[in-house]
Design a protein around this nucleic acid. Sequence first.
DNA 1: AGGGCTAACTAAAACGTTTGCGTAAAAATT
DNA 2: AATTTTTACGCAAACGTTTTAGTTAGCCCT
Lengths: 347, 347
Amino acid sequence: MNFDAITIRDIARELHLSVSTVSKALRDSYEISDKTKKLVLEYAQKNNYRPNPMAQSLKKGHSKSIGIVVSSIDNQFFSQVINGMESEAYSQGYNVIITQSHESWDLEVQNVNHLTHRAIDGLLISLSTETNDVEHLKKLQSQGLPIVFFDRVSNEIDTHKVIVDNLKGAYEATMHLINSGYKHIAHITSSAITSVSSERLSGYKKALEDSGMEVDDRYIKFCTHGGQAMSEIQQALQELLDLEVKPDAILTAWDRITTSTLSLLHKFNIKIPQEIALLGFTNTLLADVLNPSLTAVQQPAFEIGRKATEMLLSIINSKRPVTEFETVVLPTELFIRNSTARQIAVK
Amino acid sequence: MNFDAITIRDIARELHLSVSTVSKALRDSYEISDKTKKLVLEYAQKNNYRPNPMAQSLKKGHSKSIGIVVSSIDNQFFSQVINGMESEAYSQGYNVIITQSHESWDLEVQNVNHLTHRAIDGLLISLSTETNDVEHLKKLQSQGLPIVFFDRVSNEIDTHKVIVDNLKGAYEATMHLINSGYKHIAHITSSAITSVSSERLSGYKKALEDSGMEVDDRYIKFCTHGGQAMSEIQQALQELLDLEVKPDAILTAWDRITTSTLSLLHKFNIKIPQEIALLGFTNTLLADVLNPSLTAVQQPAFEIGRKATEMLLSIINSKRPVTEFETVVLPTELFIRNSTARQIAVK
DNA sequence: AGGGCTAACTAAAACGTTTGCGTAAAAATT
DNA sequence: AATTTTTACGCAAACGTTTTAGTTAGCCCT
């Protein structure tokens, strides 16, 4: 393929000017006369000149783009987060490069390496469920790459973080179930490694304890692959259904687990909420029109993304090394719908 | 921010070698002795050397990344398409840069300009609903940027394209409604400009005609903003409901229009399919668990993305200019669920 | 012994910019 | 008129690589 792109050198030759004059004219330098500027600008315009971004990046020492690692783009939570990131990044003249870890540590490392070092000016990352070793990120940070965590954070790395109040979100959700009269509330979550899971689990447990209810480990199921595989959720659900006392409500802690559980309950012909109520963390825009409409803990995804990006750019643009880091905690919101409707009476 | 990244020059100085020797050693050139290679490799490893991708890109004349423009990432169709693109691109050592046009021509142009010219080696684009002027893309193509269209294509530009058989998809969908006994089938689609809309509209009309039914323009509604705004869909729907003979079925032609229409029908308390049946183009993974489960025309989104990327990379890697272009047409699939269930009898 | 080979390396140019410094001419100041 | 200042431009180095074209030193061969 031949890219017959016009360069600053071509303009210079054609206009009988020096390369530096052209460069300065294009950047509207005070050193250049209006006449020359006009000449150069018009020629550039006419010939559709566009500066080579690689040359600029190389020269300037930054790429004006930031890397994003999420587990999966087709998760509405993450796509909303990305919308927020894109919005903030664009408004500050930055580009985003999105990669997916698909909940795999290997892929996460590979993506980070791919993005890494000067191809990006900073990294926004939500850890994969598999990740408990963050050496790869530590090394990058120590080499000066600004990193901001969002959603699934690591407490082994000191940097800005944007999370939601997972404990409170799960607490309120569980309380809602308890107040609705449910007695045997199960919890399906992801791998216990992630910050998000353990916080939500704590919220769930605290609500039970505060209500004088017993925490029974048999009602708590972990899906180590973050619910990427339907099979692991199916197994978890099956085990719950096989208990001598079946749960009458389920709190699902992850977007994908929530929707998959809903699907499986349909598949098993279990009436929601009559037989089992369902309450899940999810950001799907379709919660209202699901069958039944789904009581959900929703996260301010756009704002998470926006805020994380704002913080990352503040590190990137900081004159001196940033050593004071901040963790922003945003609130979740509980939307009560039919999937947890209290059973007034059996119709 | 200071990036104390190590360069090839640092290695050379430290090892008392020349820059070129180090470069060649790293690239495993036959000109370098095994001893030296080992030395360099070990030093590089230990000091976590990583080639500066910008310098490499500048030198090599390509960036090993491709640009993607879609209308919106939080549309499951597009996120699945992107998964396919990412998969193919990664397997060939390419990176993807994703941007969203949000159905706006202005943003589309801005994104393309941002990505454009040497920051990317090629472009994968699905036009925004607003777009009917493709001069910006023509210009880029004429300058040598490889472009592949998918989903929403322009026939003013000659290049590879990947689409689905929209006419057949809409035809089969409409036929399903007709065969289920629906008599007044409405069609809500996007702007008539897009290839996709007009093809689906044709399929809808053809099915009616082939069945001896009249095509009544009052039953066809256009949402010029591609359904980004709920309000325009609401208005379209309201107009349909205000007709003296209300439609008993609606075929929605776009993902977002489909889910929004479902929401609105709920809001208006209209029973699906008893009062109005709904059949829509959508790739949501939740079609099965919607209320009611949704009869849907689904597109092979992953494959669309994969194929488009494969074709783009074939242009990029082609030794000589490509002049023969191909349009790949993939089949859609109709999933029949409850939202169009034939009304055997009124319960 | 002289020429030709080869192996292993180096020097330098190039990719397209940006930028600090230098400088000639024009303008302003003495 | 002589000096200084300003204006408007050019030169060349630099960013970190890759690559072409040398350049040594040692070896083999007749």
